[in-house]
Computed example of a mutant assay.
Amino acid sequence: MEWFNVGTIVNTHGVRGEVRVKSVSDFEEDRFQPGQEVYVEKPETETGYEPLVIKSSRPHKQFILLTFEGFHSIDDVDWMKNAALSVPETALAPLEETEYYFHEIIDADVYTEEGSHLGYVKEILTPGANDVWVVEPAEGRQDILIPYIEEVVQQVDVAEKRITVRVMKGMLPE
């Protein structure tokens, strides 16, 4: 079974079993809702993962604060510090035709409509109205920012990890 990282527990928060999570989830509003199940790595278990049911979730600065059912104190969750939170492939919801999971876009090669290789997607930013794909350039030093909008992203081939874009004025570094 394939597992997907949705966040990292960076520390505990308070004394009542709350943990501070740095999210890398595509859909964190849904992923970290009470009742949802996530898994923490625990090598001594049969699968290597221990299931955790989210009891509460709230934003805090650039983190998400979570509590889990059955974990009531800092002593119960202290061992989770720096642990990755994951979900199995079966927990991934189907997406619309023009929607993609981050893991499908990260490391994809980016080409212009003319066939020039620009580089590969190294990161995805979610600043507001649309995502921005950060491309590590094949040549040059400055990252290329690709807005995920219809006018720019022409084709995404998930199986081939290949993205074709229309270069707009000012998009490429001088």
Rank of each mutant, 00 (worst) to 15 (best):
E97I: 02
D30H: 13
E139L: 06
T8V: 15
F68G: 04
N82I: 01
V24I: 13
A138N: 14
V152I: 07
Y148M: 02
I106V: 13
P34L: 03
E160G: 08
Q154C: 02
P94T: 06
V38P: 10
A138T: 09
V21N: 06
G115V: 03
D157S: 04
R141H: 13
T45A: 12
I124L: 11
S86P: 00
Y49H: 14
D75I: 05
F27W: 11
A93M: 12
E37L: 08
T112D: 08
S116D: 15
E46N: 12
P127C: 05
K81D: 10
R31T: 15
V40E: 10
L85V: 03
K42V: 09
A129T: 12
R31V: 08
V87P: 09
S57E: 08
I163C: 04
M1D: 12
A91P: 07
E29P: 04
V15T: 15
V158K: 05
F63R: 01
E174Y: 02
T45V: 13
E160N: 08
L145Q: 08
V134D: 06
L95V: 06
A84T: 05
L145P: 01
A159C: 00
H72K: 14
K81N: 09
R31P: 01
V19K: 05
P43R: 14
H60W: 12
S116N: 13
E151P: 01
S25W: 05
T90V: 09
Y100H: 09
D131G: 00
V10I: 15
L145D: 03
E69R: 11
A83Q: 15
V77A: 07
F68M: 08
Y101P: 00
F71M: 12
V167A: 05
G119Q: 06
E41K: 15
P173H: 05
Q142E: 15
Q154A: 02
R166V: 00
V156L: 06
E89L: 10
P88F: 04
E46F: 14
E151Y: 01
E151C: 00
P88Q: 06
W3E: 05
F71H: 14
E28F: 12
G17Y: 06
H117R: 11
F4Q: 08
V121D: 01
W133R: 01
S25L: 03
I64G: 02
V38K: 10
Y100C: 00
E37C: 12
V110P: 05
V135E: 03
G7C: 03
E174A: 12
L66K: 06
V19I: 11
S86K: 15
Q142P: 01
V152C: 04
P59F: 09
E18N: 11
W79G: 06
E2L: 12
A83Y: 11
Y120P: 00
L95K: 13
Y111K: 01
R16Q: 15
K22E: 13
I74Y: 10
R16I: 03
G140M: 05
L92M: 09
E69A: 10
N82A: 10
P51I: 01
F32K: 07
V24Y: 06
E96G: 13
E97L: 07
E29I: 07
S25Q: 06
L125C: 02
S56C: 03
P147D: 03
K61M: 09
V121M: 01
P88N: 07
M1I: 06
Y101L: 01
I146L: 09
E37G: 00
D131N: 08
M168A: 04
A138Y: 13
P173A: 04
I54K: 10
E69H: 11
G115R: 08
A93H: 14
